[in-house]
Amino acid sequence: MICILRERIKDAQVVKEMENERIDDLGIKGYQIIQKKDGFCFGMDAVLLSDFASVKTGGRVLDLGTGTGIIPILMEAKTQGSSFTGLEIQSDMAKMAQRSVKLNHLEEKVEIVEGDIKDASAIFSHDSFDVITSNPPYMIGNHGIKNPKEEKAVARHEILCTFADISQAARKLLKNRGVLYLVHRSFRLTEILNQLSKDGLEPKRIRFVHPYQGKESNIFLLEAVKGAKPRMIVEPPLIVYKNQNQYTDEIYKIYGMDVKES
């Protein structure tokens, strides 16, 4: 595949960059994504979020902190939305995501914009999106071990933006009754709920994700609606593994894979 792409792309710098990259099959509509071999790569969180989120026919979608562009690409494959935009502050990541869009011939529906979440309300028109998604950095300050690679550190720690920045951007950019979908760490749930309510984004639906049956939740998936009244549905838990190295049937289905025999 690398050789085929080299024939398509004549820019020598792009070819050089690709020597440190790999191309992964997304298992849906033949789509693929470019990722760095030793850099930040998307994880299960992004896949679960793309499955949890819903977009009405013709809806406009914005992904805040898009990274590799995985969520806009998956959302385009899974929904009937009309346009999908990813905002990414890291220049190298944004350019790589743009190449993934071109690789899949999605230029007419998916756009990657380089920019800061804190400036999102100046980059995009207010009240212009039906859906916003975000798989934001989970860790605050010195919580956890900070990766020495800047790219990974920015993706995992609140270095360049906080959750408040994301919530406030969503408040300004969503239409009335527009929906924010996000995935975050369970230990920060109270903080997240408080911030969303403060910004007029009412939490309406939540699903906790557990690594194994009987283990505590490590992440949650959340839907919040701009201008809605308080009342939240707690969905049944999502269990990732039934046994060591064996996903549950639901996880296999979310990935579009055949259910494995027990």
Rank of each mutant, 00 (worst) to 15 (best):
K204F: 00
G178E: 03
P203R: 02
L174D: 09
A97M: 02
R60W: 00
S82R: 14
K56Q: 10
K36N: 07
S100L: 05
D63Q: 10
A97S: 10
P137G: 09
I112L: 12
Q90W: 07
K149V: 14
V154N: 10
D51R: 10
L196A: 05
E114C: 09
I33A: 05
V61T: 04
T190A: 15
I159A: 10
P203S: 07
H143Q: 15
G200N: 01
D24Y: 02
I251F: 02
E76C: 10
K78V: 01
M18Q: 03
L189G: 09
A155M: 04
Q168D: 11
R207S: 10
I34F: 10
I9W: 07
E88C: 03
D63M: 11
S50M: 08
R188T: 08
G81M: 06
Q168M: 08
I159G: 11
I2R: 09
L180T: 01
M75R: 02
K16W: 01
I71Y: 12
D249L: 00
L196R: 04
L160E: 14
M18G: 07
G256I: 00
V259Y: 10
L62G: 06
R205P: 13
E7P: 01
T133C: 14
D130E: 09
P230T: 04
F129E: 07
I112K: 13
S121N: 09
V47S: 09
G39I: 02
A94C: 10
C161G: 05
D249I: 00
E151Y: 02
A153M: 12
K36T: 05
N243P: 01
A94G: 14
S83L: 03
Y247Q: 05
N194T: 04
L26W: 12
A153P: 11
A97T: 04
D51M: 02
I28P: 13
R99G: 03
Y247P: 04
